[in-house]
Computed example of a mutant assay.
Amino acid sequence: MKRYYLALDLKDDPQLIAEYEHWHQSENGWPEVRKSILDAGIIEMEIYRTGNRLMMVMATNERYDASAKAAADAVNPKVQEWEQLMWKFQQPLPWAEDGEKWVMMKQIFHL
């Protein structure tokens, strides 16, 4: 199992943040998006928030390939619809590359 840690910002608007959290409650998530995550070899995913900053933790199995996941998502209409909806709430980190949403975090300490 391998873990990945990623960051992204939400637009700093309490109403939008509340709506984003609403969509991420288990009863409001889209089954097609959940399936795409699991099918890619992601076995656990958690998102944490402080203020408007998000941190995602992903645990993956040996099948996970980020490029293959991106390619599958690009041709999945439900995933694309979800991503469009989420972009209403999200904004790129100031140092993100063009078109980059979630930015990989660098581990700087481990005990």
Rank of each mutant, 00 (worst) to 15 (best):
M1H: 07
R3Y: 15
Y4H: 06
A7C: 09
L8G: 00
D9E: 14
L10T: 11
K11I: 15
K11F: 10
D12R: 05
D13Q: 11
D13G: 07
D13F: 06
Q15N: 13
Q15A: 15
L16S: 08
L16N: 06
I17G: 03
A18D: 15
E19V: 01
Y20D: 02
Y20G: 01
Y20M: 05
Y20S: 02
W23G: 00
W23D: 02
H24R: 05
H24N: 11
H24V: 02
Q25W: 03
S26L: 13
S26Y: 04
S26D: 14
S26C: 04
E27H: 13
N28V: 04
N28I: 04
G29D: 08
W30K: 05
P31M: 04
P31E: 11
E32P: 03
V33P: 01
V33S: 04
V33A: 08
R34T: 13
R34G: 09
R34D: 14
S36Q: 10
S36W: 03
S36R: 11
I37V: 15
L38A: 06
L38R: 04
D39S: 14
D39E: 15
A40P: 02
A40N: 03
A40H: 08
G41Y: 10
I42Q: 02
I42E: 04
I42R: 00
I43K: 12
I43S: 01
I43G: 02
E44C: 00
E44H: 13
M45V: 12
M45W: 10
E46R: 15
Y48M: 13
Y48E: 03
Y48D: 05
R49H: 06
R49S: 09
R49D: 03
T50V: 14
R53N: 13
R53Q: 15
L54T: 01
M56F: 07
V57F: 01
M58T: 00
M58N: 00
A59L: 08
A59Y: 10
T60P: 00
E62K: 10
E62F: 06
R63P: 02
Y64Q: 04
Y64E: 05
Y64N: 03
D65T: 11
D65W: 01
D65E: 13
A66W: 01
A66H: 08
K69P: 00
K69C: 01
A70D: 06
A71P: 02
A71L: 12
A71W: 08
A72G: 05
D73K: 05
V75L: 08
V75I: 12
V75T: 12
V75C: 03
V75M: 07
P77Q: 12
P77K: 07
K78F: 07
V79D: 03
V79L: 07
Q80Y: 04
Q80F: 04
E81Y: 07
W82Q: 09
E83T: 12
M86R: 03
M86N: 06
M86V: 07
K88L: 12
F89A: 06
F89E: 02
Q90S: 14
Q91Y: 05
Q91K: 14
Q91R: 15
P92E: 05
P92W: 09
P92Q: 13
P92G: 13
P92V: 11
L93G: 09
P94K: 12
P94I: 08
W95I: 10
W95G: 01
W95L: 10
A96E: 09
E97H: 11
E97W: 00
E97V: 09
D98G: 06
D98C: 02
G99E: 12
E100F: 02
W102V: 09
M104H: 10
K106I: 04
K106R: 15
Q107E: 14
F109S: 11
H110M: 12
H110I: 06
L111K: 13
